[in-house]
Computed example of a mutant assay.
Amino acid sequence: MSCPFRGRIIYALMEGTHINGVAKAGAKAQIPGQPRRTLPEICYELRTKIEGFLLEDTSDHVLRNVQSQIEVSMGVIEEALRRYGPDHVSLSYNGGKDCLVLLILILACLPTWDTPSASSEPSDAGASSAPCHPQMSPPASEATVPLSAVHSDRPLQSIYIVSPHPFAEVEDFVEQSAREYHLDLRRYALPMRPALEAYLKDRPAVEAIFLGTRRTDPHGELLTHFNPTDAGWPQFMRIHPVIDWHYVEIWAFIRHLQIPFCELYNRGFTSLGGVTDTRPNPALAVGGDVPKFRPAYELRDDDEERLGRDS
């Protein structure tokens, strides 16, 4: 892929203190003296990273699975952009690992999104199942649109539904990552249904929302890539590009691409809720007088992911 900014892209996002090769949430967002990166620069950097990863010839079966998952998920994201266009989609973002992976994949899709053809596609808000989405091969350079087609003044719309008792570390990471990735983030300290009602009132053009739901999440077992909301809920299309990713694949993606994540994950938290209903995962506990926990990415079993959650 040809990228006019390749020579001056900063590949270490939020460069600073690192734990196990990945920056903590409190690290600096950019190198002092460097201008803040534009959204197009960030999108092309992420696109380049992911294309490079897809071309890797790896013997690691988890990484091979991640490569396959990326192709499917980016196909779903590109289908959503064709259906609705970027002005009518949003991202549900709470700083957690799953929606972080989804955010990175969405941003990586923007450099190859063709504005005229995408905006001409009719909206299909009544669809009830996954669309036909092609398996995506790393795109050739001629398939990409010019850098100017990804507008720095068009941030990705997003909604943050705040826990009743949020972790300070989560709040800090959401704020920092939203600023780093140029999110148009609206924050609602409300239960989910009234939060969505308020968001759609504030953003009436939104027709579809990307969600980081996975198959092992509560109520995730029957979802497809595209599902309209249930009766009695605010009406929009729910889009689930990472629905079939496994826990180890989420972490393999984050760590292999060196994506900064919330520091609570380094303390044994594997699923982030609020301070009253979330604790380090007991499956990661290390023996000793003082409780210690291994980092979240050392957990291997999907079924153990929510052992630290009361809800």
Score class of each variant (00 low, 15 high):
159 I>E: 08
134 P>A: 14
303 D>F: 09
34 Q>G: 00
282 P>E: 09
232 G>D: 04
277 D>Y: 01
192 M>G: 10
253 F>A: 07
156 L>H: 00
9 I>R: 01
216 T>G: 01
148 S>L: 08
184 D>R: 00
164 P>R: 02
216 T>R: 11
54 L>G: 00
117 S>F: 11
11 Y>V: 09
111 P>F: 05
249 E>N: 04
137 S>F: 13
291 P>T: 05
194 P>V: 07
263 E>K: 06
3 C>S: 14
68 S>H: 15
142 E>K: 14
253 F>Y: 09
33 G>R: 06
165 H>I: 09
254 I>W: 05
268 G>M: 04
276 T>F: 07
88 H>V: 02
196 L>D: 07
204 P>K: 01
286 V>C: 14
135 Q>T: 15
159 I>H: 01
174 V>W: 04
301 D>A: 15
130 A>F: 01
210 F>G: 05
224 T>G: 13
72 V>R: 12
3 C>K: 03
307 L>T: 08
211 L>R: 11
239 I>M: 00
145 V>G: 04
142 E>R: 14
71 E>A: 15
91 L>D: 03
6 R>Y: 12
10 I>D: 04
278 T>P: 03
311 S>G: 03
5 F>Y: 12
41 E>Q: 12
248 V>I: 11
115 T>S: 12
155 P>C: 03
4 P>I: 15
55 L>D: 11
191 P>S: 05
37 R>K: 08
166 P>I: 08
246 H>T: 12
310 D>H: 01
153 D>W: 12
256 H>T: 15
301 D>S: 12
224 T>A: 13
189 A>V: 13
283 A>P: 01
266 N>F: 15
173 F>L: 10
192 M>E: 00
131 P>D: 06
274 G>E: 07
67 Q>V: 01
235 Q>T: 14
293 F>G: 05
174 V>S: 07
37 R>M: 10
40 P>V: 07
119 S>T: 12
2 S>E: 13
199 Y>P: 02
310 D>E: 14
232 G>V: 12
100 L>P: 00
190 L>V: 00
14 M>K: 14
90 S>M: 02
206 V>I: 15
196 L>T: 10
91 L>W: 11
67 Q>N: 12
15 E>V: 11
241 P>C: 09
180 E>I: 11
50 I>W: 10
81 L>V: 11
40 P>W: 04
285 A>K: 14
267 R>G: 02
113 W>N: 07
192 M>V: 11
70 I>Y: 04
4 P>E: 14
231 A>S: 13
194 P>T: 00
204 P>C: 01
291 P>H: 03
102 L>P: 00
195 A>Q: 00
239 I>H: 01
275 V>Q: 13
213 T>K: 04
293 F>I: 00
281 N>L: 03
136 M>D: 00
94 N>D: 10
107 L>R: 10
61 H>A: 08
94 N>A: 08
158 S>Y: 09
168 A>P: 12
124 D>A: 14
311 S>H: 14
161 I>S: 02
204 P>T: 06
129 S>V: 13
55 L>T: 14
160 Y>L: 00
12 A>T: 15
35 P>M: 08
106 I>W: 03
227 N>Q: 09
